[in-house]
Amino acid sequence: MQSNLYDYLPILLMFIVAGGFVGGTMFVTHKLGPQIKSKIKLDTFECGIESQGNARIPFSIKYFLVAILFVLFDVEVIFMYPWAVNFKELGLFGFIEMLTFMGFLLLGFFYILKKGALKWE
């Protein structure tokens, strides 16, 4: 099946409609609500005590590691889509090739598991 450029036009239409709604609502609600500001009201939330410092602080490296692993795996996933669409034409040969590829993928996966990259304590 071939898609032409016109098929993507409605996506732009949806973007305009949804964007207009979001922008309009933001504007209207900004105008409608009461505007009584005070120093304490504009402070960030803390459970009853004064907040210390700001939130531009370092956080656990685990989250960063998960993000890096996600990039790796998601690229693999995207790489598999064209193969999956043509799977029936490619037949046994394509299947074995993908098994090899997936074997390497699992090898890397096993390695990061052994390294403890996904250990949360």
């Binding site: 907040s51 795996f73 998601d74 996933v77 999956a84």
Partner: peptide
């Protein structure tokens, strides 16, 4: 927001969402 609660929530949310996105993509491939 520059609030520690918000920051922690956001980091948790994003790493949860990206983790499950991989499995979601793989389940659709089948």
């Amino acid at each position: 927001s520059n609030n520690k609660f918000s920051l922690l929530g956001a980091i948790r949310a994003s790493s949860q969402m990206i983790s499950y996105e991989v499995a979601m993509g793989l389940s659709i491939i089948a």
